[in-house]
């Protein structure tokens, strides 16, 4: 393990930034283009994970454990969000027999 992590010293920080930007954007595209509510939730999870990885990389870069503590809190928040969100989706499905988010457009007004 020590060997592996000392070998990793060559990766520049901005490559982590690019990777996380790409994965965050994939999450945004998923939210914009899909209509299945559960797949939209998964795209939100992708975005949260991209931010988590970036926080960890910056925490290692500046030698500060606070970043990894933030990642821990984001994971707790994501677990709570998924539980409530899936409960809402089950509720919507029970009332409309569909999880197409366009069914919900009458919430607009």
């Amino acid at each position: 393990m020590e060997n592996l992590t000392t070998q990793m010293a060559g990766v520049p920080l901005n490559h982590y930034i690019y990777l996380c930007a790409i994965i965050f954007t994939i999450g945004v595209i998923g939210v914009l283009t899909r209509r299945n509510a559960i797949v939209i939730f998964m795209s939100v999870e992708l975005m949260l994970n991209a931010v988590n990885l970036l926080l960890t990389a910056f925490s290692v870069h500046s030698n500060d454990p606070s970043g990894q503590v933030f990642v821990f809190f984001i994971m707790a928040l994501a677990a709570a969000e998924v539980a409530v969100g899936l409960a809402i989706i089950v509720m919507v499905y029970r009332n409309t027999k569909s999880i197409d988010i366009n069914v919900l457009n009458r919430l607009k007004w």
Binding site: H61, N63, P65
Partner: peptide
């Protein structure tokens, strides 16, 4: 920030 990622403190995480 092109400086490579160096683990200064191996016990960080």
């Amino acid at each position: 920030i092109t400086s490579p990622l160096i683990l200064k403190n191996p016990g960080l995480g």
